[in-house]
């Protein structure tokens, strides 16, 4: 690790530097490192190249649409919601959504009195089996640092302003304990089907930084 050649130098400033996007496709030192580690471990029989390909396919198959379907089901099926809040992982697995790791899942129900927000202050733990990979801002210092100390101002940056009497509970994820926010079903959505409801549920609402809202003009 003595000849680290970095790829810095692009001039915009953000909390987490990334390699500049290189047009000539020349791999970075770190990309070469990843390739070399993977090839050596495959050659020595620790795992196969096919396992890596399968895991990439699995990662691609996990999107917030899975979480949105779970939320819409909970909104329309009270018995399901009871089970979901009691045992998130087992109830999600019953829907046929596999957990590919050892993580537990706690589903947190927003109510008129309590709003939940999830964060991982130490790194980027996230309910990946049901939401896919986290957004960039979830992994960066500003959100991780501030969510636990000033959640109302963090929410305001996402355009979410809650009444002062609503308690905000912030949940700090760990390598084993992951959280998913069950947002409040929007008023005026009684006429919508489960699938139509699912289409309203965003990734950010299941992190807790936004509310679920009906599109303009669709209230009945």
């Amino acid at each position: 690790m003595t000849e680290a050649r970095t790829n810095r130098g692009h001039d915009h400033d953000h909390g987490d530097p990334h390699a500049p996007i290189v047009a000539d496709g020349q791999p970075s030192y770190y990309e070469i490192m990843e390739t070399a580690i993977r090839e050596l471990l495959v050659e020595r029989g620790h795992f196969t190249a096919a396992e890596i390909h399968r895991q990439i396919d699995l990662l691609d198959s996990r999107t917030p649409a899975l979480g949105a379907a779970i939320v819409a089901r909970a909104w329309t099926d009270p018995a399901f919601k009871v089970r979901l809040l009691a045992d998130g992982r087992a109830t999600v697995e019953d829907l046929g959504i596999s957990f590919y790791d050892d993580t537990g899942l706690v589903v947190l129900e927003n109510t008129p009195e309590v709003h939940h927000l999830i964060v991982c202050t130490l790194c980027s733990c996230y309910p990946r089996p049901v939401l896919g990979l986290p957004p960039e801002w979830y992994k960066l210092k500003p959100y991780r640092a501030r969510a636990v100390a000033e959640p109302r101002s963090v929410l305001a940056e996402f355009g979410t302003v809650l009444p002062d009497e609503v308690e905000i509970q912030v949940h700090d994820s760990t390598s084993m304990a992951r959280y998913l926010v069950l947002p409040r079903r929007p008023d005026g959505s009684d006429h919508l089907s489960e699938a139509e409801l699912a289409a309203l549920v965003t990734r950010d609402a299941m992190i807790g930084v936004r509310l679920v809202e009906l599109p303009q003009g669709s209230r009945s």
């Binding site: 953000h14 909390g15 990334h18 964060v119 202050t121 130490l122 790194c123 990979l133 957004p135 960039e136 801002w137 960066l140 210092k141 500003p142 959100y143 991780r144 640092a145 501030r146 636990v148 100390a149 963090v154 940056e157 996402f158 700090d172």
Partner: peptide, 18 residues
């Protein structure tokens, strides 16, 4: 890694495709 509770910049909400 232990940044919870520190003051920090506004959140850049732009997404990054891997």
């Amino acid at each position: 890694n232990d940044v919870g509770g520190l003051s920090a910049a506004p959140i850049d909400q732009s997404d990054h495709v891997l």
